[in-house]
Design a protein around this nucleic acid. Structure first.
Lengths: 145, 145
DNA sequence: CCCACATACTTCTAATTCTAATAATAGGGA
DNA sequence: TCCCTATTATTAGAATTAGAAGTATGTGGG
């Protein structure tokens, strides 16, 4: 094992995986962006609509989008201006707001999901491989949380 | 198959994998950032040093870092100011520049690699699982390129 | 040889995302 | 009940990243 003697030779798989993850992320982004372009909205808005499967708080949306709450505010502002979502007072927590889709928003979201599911970047993998990938990733993110 | 009738129920694995990829990417970033913080440089600089395994052009560095060339210029400016790299004229192509590490840069890079390899986010996986993951990702990014 | 076109790097601008600070509310313990 | 701390959403400002344009050089066809 050259673990200590030659750090430049070590961690090959690490670096390979890092880069592959990065490249695949870009591919995912490109897919989302192409859908966004078809619909005339931003990629972030597409992701937000995808995650709004039910009434949730802005904080919960930020968690689902894996971004900062301030960013959720930003995207919600735009979705609200377009009449796709509404900010309602939360029924039990007066600090929070409940984000709900308007009828227009519901239609939009259905369209978004349909488009996202066509030509998915995951298509090259079989169903079994996709589950395999998911399990590996789950193991990786499960630690320390 | 509910492929067409209910787009909201479809693509579960797709969305799961998207999010897991995103979360793991954040974990990778956090790891790089912690190393960067230890060394008092930015995360992007850490990645650049990691990829500078040999004299390459700025374009090649951008490819390896999976970013725009303009961004490579940005990070190279800072590394040059710190005396870690030099921009030399390319031996055969006068448009290009050859990026080479200075002696200080070499030492720095060795340190970076050593730190990156300790507490790797990939540690939860066995060697076989890491290869499995790499193969799946390679299949995914191999398409259409 | 000359021209069109592609590539490498840089610069500038715009968009995106994060960080820090703020105000309002929740929840738990003295 | 009254604090004290944590959490929610928002705002403002900073930093990072991408995108488009500009300059110089390489490459191949006429």
């Amino acid at each position: 094992m050259a673990r200590q003697s030659d750090p430049t030779a070590d961690g090959r798989i690490d670096r390979d995986v890092c880069k592959l993850i990065h490249r695949f992320t870009q591919k995912l982004d490109a897919h989302v962006r192409s859908v966004a372009e078809e619909l005339g909205i931003t990629a972030t808005q597409v992701v937000a609509l995808r995650e709004l499967s039910e009434p949730i708080t802005a904080r919960e949306l930020a968690d689902r989008m894996v971004c900062e709450p301030s960013n959720a505010t930003f995207v919600l502002d735009r979705l609200e201006q377009q009449g796709l979502i509404e900010r309602r007072p939360h029924p039990t927590d007066r600090r929070a707001k409940q984000i709900v889709l308007t009828p227009d928003g519901e239609r939009y979201r259905t369209d978004v999901l349909t488009r996202l599911n066509t030509h998915s970047p995951l298509a090259p993998l079989t169903a079994a491989q996709q589950e395999n990938l998911r399990d590996l990733l789950q193991t990786l993110v499960a630690q320390h949380r």
